[in-house]
Amino acid sequence: MEVLSSLSLNDLVVSFSKLPVFPLFDVAYYIISILYLKYEPGAVALSRRSPVASWLCAMLYCFGSYILADVLLGDSPIDYFSNNANVLLASAVWYLMFFCPLSLFYKCVSFLPVKLVLVGMKEVVRVRKIAIGIHHAHHHFHDGWVVMVLIGWVKGSGVALMSNVEQLLRGVWKPETNEILHMSFPTKASLYGAILFTLQQSHWLPISKANLIFFFTLLMATCKIYMTATHSHGSPFALLENGICSILFGSANGDHNGHADHHHDDHEVSHASAKSKEELNEGTRKRKVKKAE
């Protein structure tokens, strides 16, 4: 306790929770978001062929969470575009990312040490958005836990949840890449964070919001920086998720699937046997023809 007091951890936590994210952290968020857009196949060609479509995709990457949350809460989905400073900053980042001479801007922000710093800063913004989303939903629906979790989740990962809409703007349609079917780490972590912040907002979790923001940001930033540095796409929660899901929902390869696979295998074996017999008969027929000749 004396060590914690000497380090003034409580003051650090409170100061961190009040740290403004505009403009420095917001710019980092825009840079990483649009950097991921540039990684998408065909994104660079689209920026040359249709700059307007490319800009709209970039705005969805930057503000998709706000748009989706406003739609769910019955607000205007273009309200956030009234923040001229944020829109101009995001637009400037988009222009530099795609049209900077010699791709100097892209080379600088994609340099791994710089990228790791920006990734950590982006997670600071993500956690703040989750917390703000929970507070906003609590103001509209005081006892609506599901609504609070949903809005917090959307605030943290709305860009990924709207990925199919963004793909349509790029002329791509890949329904099999639905984020709900194949959740990435940020989407899963945003959902878990939304649950924690909802419990805290409803006074079911005995921790202050400042502490929760600090420790959850630390967790998110650490995991994301490590995954980016090691080029890992797996979830750090995979072992825990597999254990819990196997208990609550059963194994993914249950008896039903086993029977289906067994039936499929039997069908393949029968088909292979029939095919072998046909080949054998065909060979016998050919030999008889040769003898007759």
Rank of each mutant, 00 (worst) to 15 (best):
L60H: 04
Y66H: 09
S190P: 13
V269N: 11
S273L: 14
S202P: 03
M162L: 09
A160R: 07
S110A: 15
S33V: 10
G158N: 01
L72Y: 06
L218M: 06
S251Q: 03
C100F: 12
F249L: 11
L168V: 05
F25I: 11
S273F: 11
M183W: 09
V124H: 11
H271Y: 02
G258N: 11
Q201C: 10
S110W: 00
A292M: 15
H259C: 13
G152E: 07
Y29D: 00
I32D: 01
S246P: 06
S157K: 09
Y80G: 12
N257R: 11
D26W: 07
Y226S: 00
S8K: 12
G243R: 08
E278P: 06
E268H: 05
K174W: 07
W55S: 12
P206S: 07
T228L: 02
A274L: 08
A43R: 00
R48D: 13
W204L: 14
S103A: 04
V269F: 13
V13T: 04
Y95Q: 06
C100V: 03
A92I: 15
A43I: 00
A90H: 05
E166D: 03
C100D: 02
L248K: 07
Y39T: 07
L35G: 06
I67T: 10
K286M: 14
V109T: 05
E241G: 01
D143N: 15
N211T: 08
H140E: 09
M121I: 14
G193Y: 15
P206D: 01
F185C: 02
G74I: 00
G283P: 09
Y29G: 02
L96C: 11
R48Q: 11
N211W: 04
F249G: 12
K286R: 13
V71Y: 07
A252G: 12
F99L: 08
V27H: 04
Y39V: 04
V114Q: 02
P186W: 15
A274T: 02
I67H: 03
N257Q: 10
L118C: 05
P20I: 06
G158K: 06
H263T: 04
S251K: 15
S47M: 11
L24Y: 07
D75A: 15
I151R: 05
Y66N: 08
V21M: 08
V149K: 09
S103Q: 00
K286L: 15
K18P: 14
K115G: 10
V44P: 07
S208I: 08
G144D: 15
A272H: 09
L191E: 05
R126W: 07
Y30R: 01
